[in-house]
Amino acid sequence: MSDSAHARRSARRYHLHATSAVSAPRPRQASPDELAQDRLEVLLGPDDLRQGLERDALIGLSASPKWLPPKYFYDDRGSILFEQITRLPEYYQTRTEHAILTAHAADIAETSGAQVVLELGSGSSAKTRLLLDAFLATGRLSGYVPVDVSAGALRAAMTDLRRDYPGLALHGAVADFDRHLDELPAPGTRMVVFLGGTLGNHPPETRGEFLAALSAAMRPGETLLLGVDLVKDPDRLIAAYDDSAGVTAAFNRNVLAVLDRELGGDLDPSDFAHRAVWEPDREWIEMRLRAVRPVRARLEGLDLDLAFAEGEELRTEISAKFRREGITAELGAAGLTVEHWWTDDAEDFAVLLARR
């Protein structure tokens, strides 16, 4: 799993079809009057989300081996389970990233020099408040642009932010940042925030496409604040994705309940066992569901019959772990230069600032 407010409140984005960097137009420049009142742009509607689920389930469950994007973990129950995961002793990512931001938010604000904070997958904007406070202290911050797939989460977050930050202009966008990077509000020089290790949900090929598209949607001088989980002892990684209390196992199997409810299925989560596997050659964790017996099921909404042999696995997530030299090179290939790197003493997690 990767940790982000976006994940906790709605759905982490799984970048299967990133926009081509070649064709991405320049971001739209908002007028000064647009910051005079709170705004919420809707670039993604309920029909778009439904079509995405149908497309992804049909492609992934018809593949060999079978797979699903991890964004479908996050219905109401999945979001509650993930909140529990972030508090488990084995799951270091949330508390470590929060500690890094607490220690270095002032440095981040000063180094970035941005006027606007734009957050991809903002959800409740909880961790971002550390950054907003630091940016406000510089006297340069003119606005915050939260971006999420959930209109409800955005409205709730903006209501809370308006209460706590009465002088800050808010310009939310309901959007899928697989598809809408070039359409996101640009009301001043931005720092794009992408926290929680969510980049690791990309396989390498689409990760490069996503970073190139993001870079193309940024103006020269704008910055990216990126949180990445680092390579470490595989036993610690596996424990973080297969906790002793079984919360992650319940979280993983919950995706089957989502398919049943949304697509008229009859999958039984008890037919599947949770697995977390470290792939050393790829340096990523895979979460899988393994059939404990032969399974036959149907998704009526897709007119799709499913068959799993005993022991057959469904991959539900990859979570890549990074090395400093590797992520620096990947960002460089996308036209983003790493200027600063902040980490914890154990070097479990890193937050970096890269400039376009």
Rank of each mutant, 00 (worst) to 15 (best):
R9N: 05
S10T: 08
S10L: 00
S10H: 06
A11R: 00
A11W: 00
A11M: 02
R12M: 09
R13N: 08
R13Q: 09
R13M: 13
H15Q: 09
L16N: 02
L16P: 07
H17I: 07
H17E: 10
A18S: 05
S20C: 06
S20N: 12
S20H: 12
A21C: 03
A21D: 05
V22N: 09
V22F: 09
S23M: 15
A24R: 09
P25Y: 10
R26G: 15
P27Q: 05
R28C: 10
Q29R: 12
A30V: 01
A30R: 02
S31W: 06
E34S: 14
L35F: 05
L35N: 07
L35A: 11
L35T: 04
A36Y: 10
A36G: 15
A36H: 09
A36P: 02
Q37A: 14
Q37P: 06
D38A: 11
R39I: 09
L40E: 09
E41H: 06
E41L: 14
L43M: 05
G45H: 01
D47S: 13
D47R: 12
D48E: 14
L49K: 08
L49Q: 10
L49V: 14
L49Y: 00
R50K: 12
Q51V: 02
G52D: 12
G52F: 04
R55G: 07
R55D: 14
D56E: 07
D56A: 03
A57I: 05
L58K: 15
L58N: 07
L58Q: 08
I59D: 11
L61A: 07
S62F: 06
S62A: 05
S64R: 11
S64I: 03
S64P: 04
P65M: 04
P65D: 07
K66A: 14
K66C: 11
W67G: 00
L68T: 08
P69S: 09
P70I: 06
P70S: 15
K71T: 07
Y72W: 15
Y72D: 10
F73P: 08
F73H: 12
F73Y: 15
Y74S: 11
D75R: 02
D76F: 10
D76G: 13
G78Y: 01
G78V: 04
G78H: 01
S79E: 00
S79N: 09
S79V: 01
I80P: 01
I80H: 13
L81H: 07
L81C: 10
L81F: 08
F82N: 01
F82C: 10
F82S: 01
E83F: 08
E83T: 05
Q84F: 06
Q84R: 15
I85E: 00
I85A: 01
T86P: 13
T86H: 10
